[in-house]
Design a protein around this nucleic acid. Structure first.
Lengths: 205, 205
DNA sequence: TGCAAAACGTCAATGAATGCAAAATTACAT
DNA sequence: ATGTAATTTTGCATTCATTGACGTTTTGCA
């Protein structure tokens, strides 16, 4: 069952791939808002109507590898060693699903351009946050399952606190125009703060 | 200068109010997607085109009091007593800007219905998360200013961690259908976890 | 080969959002 | 009170994402 893709599937996948590449190229060339769905569809030689059988919306195409990132994350959580501290586990999840390049070459290729794109288009920011939120709910469930000592509220708080800290820190860094290296350091710091708690912050002089 | 509103302003405010009430009523009656901007405009006796000079988009009308909530929060942060622990300060911010009814009666009146509405319409969820994210960046700045002992990254992590924990916990509670009282308890717990850190969570048996 | 399902495409419609220029309203100085 | 400038409102046209209905083509499989 899970073996041969079949001609139909292969064709679909090729079209999908073409759509993604075509769309990201157009977005880079003329901007997101200036690119119409019809133009994207044209790059893969399909009708405009058909685009919507590949992606639910125009924004969705930008986040083509979200699903696989989530799956990887859930997998990592599922492989938790009994007794492993939650903090250690979540550190691994962040490292291997956020920073690793999941969807093979494609993700690596578009990586930085995509980040810039999202940051510059409000509609994409909103979509990203929505997807990320949904991801957090699923991570919460996975964590709750993998860590019987945590109730659902604790699992949710753990995920939300860690992801929230990182997301806001990254945005703050981008806003001030930090270099990627500094931003990476900042993510580490954010992770530590979420794990150690706000009480670990420097006290007033 | 900051005294009398002037007829023009008063009229505008009345129209705005009418739009908000009309829109929320229609949303409740026929659902968000089934309500058109033209219908909303009609409830306030203005042209469809004019709606967009009051709100940038159809979703925006649902979050009419976000600005004032944010302003209240920034104000509270600005009034921080020197030496007051960050955790205490942020606790106050949550209590008084998230749970307090800011926009006078209107906010109180629509409160629960609005919450249900947002939860049931994906477009509104996305918008809310986007607005909340922006709010967090502004809170980060305010906190950084009010707490000289925190650098920007630390301030961002503090805000993101706390808000993120609460948001995910609330969503998890709604998803499982908790009663408001339980949800409130959960928010308290989430706050504690963000403040005490993930390391304060129960260890595996 | 031939049928059923899956995919694709055409056509038409809806509805949000925006730009533009004219018309209406309000503020303000004289 | 009146005229003028500033602000709002509006009608109109347009673009474009998204969706529904329905007929046509492909592909998978018996």
């Amino acid at each position: 069952m899970t073996s041969e893709p079949g001609l139909r599937q292969r064709k679909k996948m090729r079209t999908r791939q073409a759509l993604i590449e075509g769309a990201l190229r157009l977005f880079a060339e003329k901007g997101y808002d200036q690119t119409t769905v019809a133009e994207i569809a044209a790059t893969a030689d399909i009708a405009t109507r058909t685009f919507f059988s590949y992606f639910d919306s125009k924004d969705d195409i930008v986040f083509f590898d979200d699903r696989s990132r989530l799956e990887r994350a859930v997998e990592i959580i599922g492989e938790r060693q009994p007794g492993e501290p939650v903090a250690d586990l979540l550190r691994r999840v962040i490292d291997q699903s956020v920073f690793a390049d999941t969807d093979s070459e494609l993700a690596r290729k578009v990586g930085p351009a995509r980040t810039r794109l999202i940051a510059s288009v409000p509609a994409l920011q909103a979509r990203e946050l929505h997807l990320l939120f949904d991801i957090q709910l699923q991570l919460t469930e996975a964590l709750h399952l993998a860590c019987p000592e945590l109730d659902l509220v604790e699992a949710a708080a753990a995920v939300g606190s860690l992801v929230g800290a990182i997301k806001v820190v990254v945005a703050a860094c981008q806003k001030r125009g930090n270099r990627p290296e500094q931003t990476y350091k900042a993510v580490q710091r954010a992770t530590d703060i979420a794990i150690e708690g706000l009480n670990s912050l420097p006290r007033p002089a």
